[in-house]
Amino acid sequence: MASLWEYANPKKFIATSDRVLPYLGGLALVCLVVGLSWGFWFTPEDFRQGHSVKIIYLHVPSAFMAINVWIMMLVASLIWIVRRHHVSALAARAAAPVGAVMTVIALATGAIWGQPIWGTWWVWDPRLTSFLILFLFYLGYMALWAAIEDDDTAADLTAVLCLVGSVFALLSRYAVIFWNQGLHQGASLSLDKEENVADVFYFPLLVCIAGFVFLFLTLVLLRTQTEIRARRMRALQARERLG
């Protein structure tokens, strides 16, 4: 059986991702269209929150992705540190802006939702605050990538930052819970059935989450390809200079 590490070869990665991309993109489109229209037009209104509940179909998937993108970056950074596969470092780099945008979407939809329900755009609630801090981590990570000229040095440094940042992000999460107990409702999705949203909201929500996952995969593959090609261009230019 072919090893997973074969895809660490940039050429092989580009060839394979080229084949996969149309399907992933298509799946993302279908899931998002089906999930969002199901959620927006074919679910009942919440008896307390009215139609404003429907923003859940954007809010929950983006919040879910905001965290998971960071975890994916952490895994990719670890792979880079341990096995030094360059594609994984570039994939981490490619994922960061997507994660940052997901965080912004989660924060913005949260604010829009919070206005009618809590009567305020923003509260210093533990969840909101944690997401804000996560966003700052994304910013720092991207800024460090952008600031360093040498590709390998940048990959090494950002990988360490990602590791250390993950620990501190976790610490911050517990710190803000301690700091303020908060308004935010419990998890919309969890293994504990009691806490979950009602089934009628649950299934379209799952479809939307699947859509966001596919969307993320599509974007990350595309961006990784771009990073690989940019890197290749720099390598070619370097060789040109050497003559």
Partner: peptide, 12 residues
Amino acid sequence: AAVLDSFDEAFL
């Protein structure tokens, strides 16, 4: 002939 390091070679 301008040998690039192993990684950059993988890109060419």
